[in-house]
Computed example of a mutant assay.
Amino acid sequence: MTVTSTVLIRTREARRQQRSGLPKWVLIGAEILVPILLLAVWWIVSANSTNTFFPPLETILERMASLAATPAFWGDVGSSVGNLLLSFALASALGVGLGIALGMSRWLSWLVEPTIHFFRAIPPVALVPIFVSLIGFGNETRILSITLSAVFPVLISTIDGIHAVDPDRRAVGRIYRLGAWDRIFSVALPEASPRILSGMQVSLITAFVVMIASEMLGSSIGLGARTLLAQQSFMIADMWVGILVLGIIGYVVTALLAIFRRRVLRWYIAIRQQEKNL
């Protein structure tokens, strides 16, 4: 082995270490430690608080424990989480299905995309009063408003992902005379999946925001309604409990989707990592 080759190997190894960043256990530890530190700071800062709207964290946690012992609290949690998951699943299925249909047809995509971008530009929360006026205050209204608000990120990312499929792969599919379904599931979807799952992450955040807004507007069920009612009734500790629980739910569902995305895209992440290490 020559001196030049030895230097090149060591240089590559050094670059890999620099690009790999911190060890994984450090990142996981920081992700756990930072929320704990924030809660500790909150506990210390609010310990002697006499502000009505900023009670001590100890009081909030005690109230959370007492509410967690009541069936009504878990009923609100179940209603919110159920609406969120059902609406997100419907939005994902509808967005991917329509996105594939529009992405595989250039002329149809060109015809419909201006309308899609028009409705996408409307703030999702602004759609809630419209659905309430048309349908009423039932649970169906909340599910419909969440679904239609969350469908656009998945729909647009699916269309873009299908359009970005390598033309050479499309040509190979035609050469081997693959059927329409085979071209979709064997060629288009695997290559478009990174963009589709990124759109699903945005869709989940949108669904979560609209879920809270739909419950706060004319509903008496769900964590959003409970939090708003507590604020209007000056039950400040209950209001903070609702905010904390909503934050926990948002973090958990986002983390679960991130884990799902990493597992589905292991092949894609491995390819990207190899490209970085070159």
Score class of each variant (00 low, 15 high):
R106Y: 07
S92H: 09
G103Y: 08
G95W: 10
L102G: 01
F131D: 00
A101H: 03
A121T: 15
G99L: 01
A93E: 01
A93F: 15
N83F: 12
A121I: 12
A93P: 06
G103V: 09
L127V: 13
T115F: 14
A89H: 06
L111C: 10
V132A: 14
L134R: 11
L127C: 12
L102F: 11
L111R: 04
I122N: 13
L85R: 07
G82E: 11
F131T: 01
S109R: 04
E113K: 00
H117E: 13
V112G: 00
G103H: 08
L86G: 05
A126E: 11
S105F: 09
V132W: 11
S105M: 03
A91H: 09
L90R: 00
S92G: 12
T115M: 13
R106C: 01
I130H: 01
S133R: 14
L90C: 13
L98I: 15
R106V: 04
L111A: 15
G97H: 05
N83E: 12
S105C: 10
S133C: 00
G97F: 13
A91N: 08
L111Q: 05
R106F: 09
N83S: 14
L94R: 04
L111T: 12
S133A: 15
V128K: 07
S105E: 08
A91M: 11
V132D: 03
L90T: 10
V125L: 15
R106A: 06
L84C: 01
P114R: 07
S109F: 05
P124R: 10
M104E: 05
S109N: 09
F131E: 03
E113W: 05
S109L: 00
P114E: 10
L98F: 13
P129H: 03
N83K: 14
R120Y: 15
L94D: 03
L108K: 07
A89C: 14
I135R: 08
A91R: 07
P123V: 13
I100S: 02
L84S: 06
I135L: 15
L127W: 15
M104D: 00
W107F: 10
I100W: 00
W110D: 06
I135C: 08
A121D: 11
W110H: 09
R120E: 14
A101P: 02
S109W: 00
L98Q: 01
L111N: 05
R120G: 12
F131P: 03
L86E: 07
V112E: 02
I122F: 12
L134G: 07
L85Q: 10
L134Y: 14
E113Y: 00
S105R: 11
I122P: 11
L134P: 05
S133Q: 13
I116H: 03
A101R: 02
R106Q: 07
A91K: 07
L102R: 04
V112K: 01
S87D: 06
L85A: 13
L94N: 04
S105P: 02
S87Y: 06
G103Q: 02
V112T: 10
V96D: 06
V132I: 15
R120I: 09
L85K: 07
F131K: 06
L85W: 09
L108T: 05
P114L: 06
L85S: 10
V132T: 12
T115C: 05
S109T: 03
L98M: 13
E113S: 05
W110Y: 11
G97P: 00
I122L: 15
P114I: 11
